[in-house]
Design a protein around this nucleic acid. Sequence first.
DNA 1: ATATTATCTGAACGGGTGTTCAGGGCAAGG
DNA 2: CCTTGCCCTGAACACCCGTTCAGATAATAT
Lengths: 195, 195
Amino acid sequence: MARTQGSHSEITGPRIRAAALKLFAEHGYAAVSMRQIAREVGVQAGALYNYTPDKQDLLFSLMKQHMDELLEACADRVKDGDATTRLHNFVDFHITFHMGRADEIFIAYMELRNLSPENFHTIETLRRAYEDVLEAILTAGLVEGVFDVPNPKVTTRAIIAMLTGITTWYRPDGALSPPEVSDLYWNMTRKSVGV
Amino acid sequence: MARTQGSHSEITGPRIRAAALKLFAEHGYAAVSMRQIAREVGVQAGALYNYTPDKQDLLFSLMKQHMDELLEACADRVKDGDATTRLHNFVDFHITFHMGRADEIFIAYMELRNLSPENFHTIETLRRAYEDVLEAILTAGLVEGVFDVPNPKVTTRAIIAMLTGITTWYRPDGALSPPEVSDLYWNMTRKSVGV
DNA sequence: ATATTATCTGAACGGGTGTTCAGGGCAAGG
DNA sequence: CCTTGCCCTGAACACCCGTTCAGATAATAT
């Protein structure tokens, strides 16, 4: 027996990625086996290797895709306006973007150490590029004379850590709506940079 | 052959805990085997079971001990003064305490999902108790009329996330000294709550 | 209708996993 | 000096790991 009814690359491929994403986020990369992923998809473990060269690449490509989408979507959102407007847009973007992708975020921040050295380097570079977007906004605000930020590098990390922490408690069915969360965090961010 | 020269419970026990702490922090609980821990200590894997009932308990007891020490040390630091003073003390305590314990923090935040349900519940309760310390300070500041904090619960999580993020970039041999870091973060925290 | 190709199965590979335990050696107590 | 008991070894247990691959089948192209 072999190829079963309805089998198709364009269906199975995304299903494998979705299953891996979900399971990696839930249990961690190291704790999830290829056989578990295969079972979730309804396929034998060997079939996964039609879609990924190995387990490491499955993790890496999920993280890479996430970071690429993050950077692309971010760039559109923060290119216009004065520093305060751009900062507001960045905060709102970060929160909104991350709320719909809890699993991706979790993996992007938790599984860095399970990447091979060269894969780690690639993801780390993208992560730094994202930080640089915020740092550029803070520096622009300093130049405009509207922000009170003694150390833009540290402030960048502080703000991103604060915003990303939302994923540890936010639930779609919780007490706060996304706009309410965005507003709360924007006010904290705004005040912390002295606007 | 069996008991080797120099073997002793009071030496081996802590060495096992130290090795597990280091390896869990470096590679993650699921990626570290009992044989790796044993090798780090210079002992056979079977010997570990004189000191821990199983691998899960080894992780749990490390996390539990960390949380207990965190809560005890914290309580001493924030019991006196007005809300602003207590907030300042909390921020400084959190940063100082965490800087010397990078491995413990890493595990406490990253390995929650590898705890058994009942162990998770225990640690989660302690974590919430720690959050409650900060939330009580914020609420006290509201009562005193000195803080501008629309939502103390969310603000608590935001501040803790921001402060804990330090562990992802701080290095003892880096550009900033601990007091400088503490000062930078205190100013951001202070401004974000409107003081 | 037939040939080709894409897709999947099922078994196998070598090796690693957490954990148990009988037995042996070291140190301390009588 | 001899016994007692703690500490450790080394082998074994049953099972799971990532990965490979020959062979079988379904869909597609001719």
